[in-house]
Design a protein around this nucleic acid. Structure first.
Length: 122
DNA sequence: CGTATTTGACCTGCGC
DNA sequence: GCGCAGGTCAAATACG
C-alpha cells in the first residue's frame, strides 16, 4: 500500500540521516494529505505562517512519552500538491502499532529482525 | 469523560 | 533596545 511505501521511505531516510551527522532530515512527498501515517502518533502543537511561503507550517511532536522527536510539515511553496516533511531527533522507542518479530543479541544490542508486520495495513 | 487539536500569546535569537 | 521571524505553550474547544 502507499502508506507502507511511505514508511519504508521514511525509515530509509531516517537511517541515512543517522549515518550522517545530523538527525534532521527533510524530504518532499507527493500527497494531497499531510497526515500520512508513518507509524508514529503525532500530536500537533503549533502552526505558523512562514514568510517565505504563503502556506502555513505545522509542528508535530511524537506523542509517545519520553520521545522528543519533532516533525514539521509544510506544503511546497511552488507545488501545492507536494508536502515537505522534516524530522528532527531520534525515536527512543519502536513504532507503536507495529509488531516486530525480532530477537535482540545481548552482547551487541542489535536486533535480528525476523520480520515485521503493520497490523493496520493489508 | 479523556484525549487530541486549534490558535493566539509568549519566548528567544538575531540583525540593525 | 526594538522588531521581526521562527518555535513553543496552553487554554479553550472539538471529538471519540
Amino acid at each position: 500500500s502507499e502508506g507502507e511505501h511511505f514508511r519504508t521511505a521514511v525509515a530509509a531516510l531516517a537511517d541515512e540521516g543517522r549515518a550522517r551527522t545530523t538527525d534532521r532530515i527533510a524530504f518532499r512527498t507527493r500527497s494531497d494529505d499531510e497526515v500520512l501515517d508513518d507509524g508514529y502518533k503525532w500530536r500537533k502543537y503549533g502552526k505558523k505562517t512562514v514568510k517565505n511561503s504563503p502556506n502555513p507550517r505545522n509542528y508535530y511532536r511524537c506523542s509517545t512519552e519520553g520521545c522528543t522527536v519533532k516533525k514539521r510539515v509544510e506544503r511546497d511553496r511552488n507545488d501545492p500538491r507536494y508536502v515537505v516533511t522534516m524530522y528532527e531527533g531520534r525515536h527512543s522507542h519502536v513504532c507503536p502499532g507495529t509488531v516486530y518479530y525480532a530477537a535482540q543479541d545481548a552482547a551487541s544490542g542489535r536486533f535480528f529482525v525476523a520480520g515485521m508486520h503493520h497490523p493496520d495495513l493489508n
